[in-house]
Amino acid sequence: MTNEEVYVRAYEEIKLRGLSPHTVEEYLGKLTLFLRYFDNRPIETMGENEIREFLLYQLDSGKSSGTVNIYNSALRFIFGAVLGRNLNYQLIPRRRQYRPLPSIMTKSEIVLFFSTIDNLRDKAIFETVYGAGLRISEVARLRVQDINSEQMRIFVSHGGKERYTLLSQRNLELLREYWKHYRPSHPDGYLFYSRGRKNNIMTTRAIQDAFHRHCKNANLPNTFTVHTLRHCFATHLLESGAEVCCIKELLGHTFIQTTSFYLHLSNTNQLVQSPLDTLPKKRGRKSKVKSNA
């Protein structure tokens, strides 16, 4: 099988599995970089040793563990599903990832952030991200028909998976005000668009830039990102008593372990009492203090 035929077969295998367009782009892009590293040698002549060398090169180049694991997954798929090879995974292990705790905005900081936004479109975007727990790519591709005001929920499609999340009354009123002033008319129904270009939806970069601009105006730390609002959505729901399983569905997580990460961010420990403090008090002899004299 030639390298060109591998590309065609890889696309077919990804399509058969119903993987997202983003996955197609990621896997085929990683395949291109792998072949380029070895001067486009026939991929059928390569195996675990070449994959190891390539992954080590990526680490030496400063790539993060998460990025290197994506390279690893892509190449495992190409060699396994496309070429039908049984690789020795002991030789190409996935790299252990350390996930640091992200910065979280307090509710007072969120109020301050929203109060400094003087642009109706930007305010509608960021209140929707926080109010519904959306990813930046999800709010960028939010459509008018995704807003269900009757059932007070928002339809979200991401990575080939669909879910419903919350639509708050405040969010609905703001979106209606935005609709009234901007009258979005994209042929596919997309809600947010670039200034003066109604047929061009907002890019994630433009949304991120707007977020940092408003954070700066509010004198908030530059460590906050748009995704911080999604973290805050989950953390504040957890602190208000929402079940982890419910939050998992709203966020669109596949595994409950991913959602359980927010247990480390919430202040629910303040509501938990040590069992030592719950023991019934019983009178007894006072403990004597031993003297060294």
Rank of each mutant, 00 (worst) to 15 (best):
I247P: 13
N200W: 06
V8Y: 13
R135C: 01
K63G: 00
L142V: 13
T106E: 13
R285M: 12
G47M: 02
Y178I: 09
V24W: 04
N219G: 01
A206Y: 07
N222S: 15
S137A: 13
K107F: 09
S61C: 04
S149V: 09
Y7L: 12
S103H: 05
M202T: 00
K282M: 12
P280A: 05
K286C: 02
L112T: 10
Y182Q: 12
V139K: 04
R85S: 02
L87P: 00
R135Q: 00
I14G: 05
L83S: 12
G131K: 03
E162G: 10
K15I: 13
R205L: 08
F224H: 02
K248D: 08
N86A: 06
R99H: 07
T278K: 15
P275Y: 07
L237E: 07
R17K: 15
T204Q: 11
N269R: 12
V226A: 09
V8Q: 15
E26R: 13
G29E: 02
I104M: 04
T228V: 05
Q169D: 13
L191Y: 10
A81H: 09
H158E: 13
D118K: 07
A234H: 05
L175N: 05
T165D: 04
E25H: 10
G252A: 08
N40G: 14
G47R: 06
L55P: 04
V156Q: 12
R195Y: 10
L175C: 08
T235L: 06
T258W: 06
P187D: 02
L33S: 12
R52A: 03
T106H: 12
S185H: 11
Q273L: 14
I136H: 00
L112K: 14
D122S: 06
T128W: 05
H212S: 09
I136P: 06
K248W: 01
V129W: 02
E5N: 15
K63R: 10
K180Q: 15
P184G: 09
S20M: 05
A242P: 04
Q208P: 05
L101A: 06
Q257L: 07
R163N: 04
C246F: 14
F211G: 07
E48L: 01
F79R: 10
V24A: 14
R195M: 11
R76F: 00
D277A: 11
A140F: 05
R283A: 13
L279R: 10
L276N: 04
C245R: 14
M202G: 02
L237H: 11
T106P: 14
E243V: 03
S157N: 12
Q270E: 14
M105Q: 04
G62F: 03
K63A: 13
I125A: 06
E109I: 04
H253G: 02
